[in-house]
Design a protein around this nucleic acid. Structure first.
Length: 381
DNA sequence: TCTGGGGTCCTAGGACCC
DNA sequence: TCTGGGGTCCTAGGACCC
């Protein structure tokens, strides 16, 4: 059996646990400082009672509940808590993996009473962190994850041969991880409405109609395979940052300053993790240009923000437009390798030394103590 | 007054090599 | 000059998740 442990309103619950003034209050956590120009990252259960949920524009959330409390995300705090929870779970002696920042899976093998185990885990998490978790139990990861959503918050649900058919018949297929808007549309045409409808289709039927995605869903539902371990320590496959401007801009200098800033942020993260990238991906979008994205792979890996910036600019030239109207933009680096800090040329050695010095100033004095002057342009217009 | 930001995986076609 | 077959890497874009 697999236990899927899903934290309830994770970010919002942590903020309430840390700050007693927020306890019992409707609260949202937003991804950015300007509280009317962001979307809801997490909503406390008090906020959910007003119909607020993650993904909703914060403006709409404030309309539903004017007294809403607002907190800006603090990723460091959430990652730290997530790691602590993983350690706690590993203490039970079963193989446990990280599924996302607020989800964990535990292979409890043939534990005699998984429900009691789940109850103990919930209590220990609550005692330690003052937050709650919902737990799903089933014979594989996909079903366990589905089960964890059935009794939220602070609930336990088990899917076993006794209740599987009955339960799946009540759950819309959209609830299943891997079924998004597009897949749901295809299912509608095929007459698949509930998870049970999907469960009863053959592998061949699903592969014919949905290709690999269909086959994966079939396997996810029917296999009793061991979950795919994804360790928290695994290195990322890409690192990126993006930003949406408050209104579209045609000012090339301003746009370039933003690309410089995003390149700086990406470069810093690469250096912190001792990685370098071969591929740089720049994307731009605006009212007249739904989405322009292009990537380029270079022979030499880099984690120098300046180099990432100039590679981005070369991609920008490919838009073929002189000064396009831009509303949102992003810089992402992929094709990651361990950084090789052994420059040979005199000039490269100097450059490496300079970057190291700047990074150490920012580490000691706080982020953004020192940064390229051109970045200040992002604030002046 | 329009809905952020961080990711992963998959597919299909082109370029190029042997 | 034209033809097969096998394989890798790169790019663009789609779908999905938290």
């Amino acid at each position: 059996m697999i236990l899927h442990i899903d934290m309830d309103a994770f970010f919002a619950s942590i903020e309430q646990a840390v700050n007693p003034k927020l306890k019992g209050k409707p609260l949202i956590v937003g991804s950015r400082g300007s509280k009317l120009h962001t979307v809801v990252c997490a909503a406390s259960y008090e906020a959910k009672a007003y119909g607020i949920d993650s993904g909703m524009p914060s403006l709409d959330a404030f309309k539903l509940c004017p007294d809403l409390k607002f907190v800006v995300t603090d990723q460091g705090k959430y990652i730290w808590t997530s790691e602590q929870i993983l350690e706690l779970l590993k203490g039970y002696g079963f193989e446990t993996v990280y599924a996302s920042i607020d989800e964990f899976q535990m292979d409890v093998l043939d534990a005699p009473n998984p429900q009691t185990l789940a109850k103990n885990i919930q209590e220990q998490i609550h005692e330690t962190f003052k937050i709650t978790a919902s737990i799903g139990i089933a014979r594989n990861g996909l079903l366990a994850k589905l089960a964890s959503k059935l009794n939220k918050p602070n609930g336990i649900a088990i899917l076993d041969p006794d209740n599987l058919g009955r339960t799946l018949a009540e759950v819309p297929v959209k609830k299943l991880c891997g079924v998004g808007v597009k897949t749901e549309l295809i299912f509608e045409v095929l007459g698949i409405k509930t998870c049970l409808d999907l469960y009863q289709k053959s592998a061949q039927f699903l592969e014919q109609n949905l290709g690999q995605n269909g086959l994966n869903l079939y396997l996810g539902l029917h296999s009793s395979e061991h979950f795919k371990a994804r360790e928290i320590e695994e290195k990322p496959k890409s690192v990126g940052h993006s930003y949406t401007l408050s209104k579209a801009s045609q000012n090339t200098g301003f746009i370039k300053a933003w690309i410089r800033l995003l390149s700086e942020m990406v470069g810093r993260r690469l250096r912190q993790q001792n990685l370098a990238c071969k591929t740089v991906h720049l994307w731009l979008s605006g009212p007249e240009m739904a989405h322009f994205g292009a990537q380029k792979t270079y022979r030499e890996p880099t984690n120098d923000s300046c180099e990432i910036y100039s590679r981005s600019l070369r991609i920008m030239d490919k838009t073929g437009q002189k000064s396009p109207k831009i509303r949102a933009l992003g810089v992402t680096c992929s094709n990651l390798f361990p950084a090789d800090n052994s420059a040979l040329l005199k000039e490269d050695i100097r450059k490496e030394g300079l970057i190291k010095a700047l990074d150490s100033i920012n580490t000691r004095q706080g982020d953004w103590s020192i940064y390229p002057a051109s970045v200040t342009l992002t604030r002046h217009i």
